[in-house]
Design a protein around this nucleic acid. Structure first.
Lengths: 197, 197
DNA sequence: CGCTAACCGGACCGAGCGGTCAACTTGCTA
DNA sequence: TAGCAAGTTGACCGCTCGGTCCGGTTAGCG
């Protein structure tokens, strides 16, 4: 199901430049960074962008896919960690570091987030996290009333909250990840007012 | 420094319609809801929008101001609550409920967020929260290494994380507020990796 | 080395945006 | 109730955007 013919050398180079230029440009200017600016940053013409990605949404989907696959690789490597609690923690740190380098969370709001490939990558990630959390729970490292979905939602929060303070330490998110992680621990847990989603 | 002449009756009515129509439209379509759509929703012409608010940013600033003032009123009323822990909790719930009704957090990203009036309202809110947190800390209800700024940042998180699940219970944010609040408690707290901002 | 299919670039298009303006309507006051 | 300042309106402007297209360029194979 992949390409019948490999990309020409220059085309492959341009595709890669475009992907990183687009990621940078989106990180700086937000969701409505213009395709023209992305092309300029990559050092190619605007037409080249649309040759590689039929629409702007397709470009966003490709970026999303790259990042999710990277995270999935980390998660799967952590699945058989000796200490499940540390495994979950390391996964959350990896996710935070990815977003520290370039916060592209808002790309999830674009229509591209529903593209088939992105959806399957997301499903894979959800399943990985579910397993990570199950093991940590069995190990007594997280409270009983927490699910994988809870972690999926909460993992984005630390970077989000620090984005309101653009000139703070780039590592500040680690503080809030630690606070939230403390809230996930079994000791001192209070009953939750709402069931998990 | 206020208006030398009161607004005409129909103008005052239109201004109010515009404010709620704009809030609704922004909540539905995000930051780039068009002025034309807002005008249509309010049942007025586009020119009327610009008579009341010189630019789109001014309109956003007016909405922001309304919401912050409402929250400030709640906070100040809670300042002399008998139980400081409950006071802080109630404030966070009020903030969550405001965002549950209409999530307009992204308006903070607009240039309008730096308008003079908005900035002073925000400063007021920060000071109120600082006091709320100080009292709760003295009362032993939150851990010693937490500041008011921490709460300012974290208070937005519960609604944010649930926005990734558009079809979940509208009260789901209360679950995550409770988890985060558990992380703020003194019992079972682990040392934090980063200093407060 | 020469041929050609793949690739590139940027002028161009229509749509939609924020904002302006001059002609028209209406609430308020004397 | 008459007059007018205040308010309203929608056509209009300049601009930027995502996306198209075709003439010129180039990588790679035989």
């Amino acid at each position: 199901m992949s390409s019948p013919r490999p990309l020409r050398a220059d085309a492959a180079r341009n595709r890669e430049s475009l992907l990183v230029a687009a990621a940078d440009e989106f990180a700086e200017r937000g969701l409505d960074a213009s395709v023209a600016d992305i092309a300029r940053r990559a050092g190619v013409g605007k037409g080249t962008v649309f040759r590689h990605f039929a629409t702007k949404d397709d470009l966003i989907a490709a970026i999303l896919l790259d990042r999710m696959n990277a995270l999935n690789a980390v998660g799967e490597r952590l699945l058989d960690a000796p200490d499940p609690a540390a495994g979950l923690w390391k996964f959350l740190v990896a996710a935070g570091e990815q977003r520290q380098q370039r916060d592209l969370s808002f790309l999830q709001d674009a229509g591209a987030a529903n593209a088939a490939e992105v959806t399957t990558a997301r499903t894979t990630m959800f399943r990985t996290i579910d397993t990570l959390v199950d093991r940590a729970r069995e190990h007594g490292a997280v409270r009983a009333d927490i699910t994988g979905t809870d972690i999926v939602l909460l993992m984005c929060a630390p970077n989000y909250v620090t984005s309101y303070l653009p000139d703070a330490s780039p590592d500040l998110w680690r503080r809030y990840l630690a606070i939230i992680f403390d809230g996930l621990r079994p000791d001192g847990a209070h009953p939750l007012p709402q069931p998990p989603p």
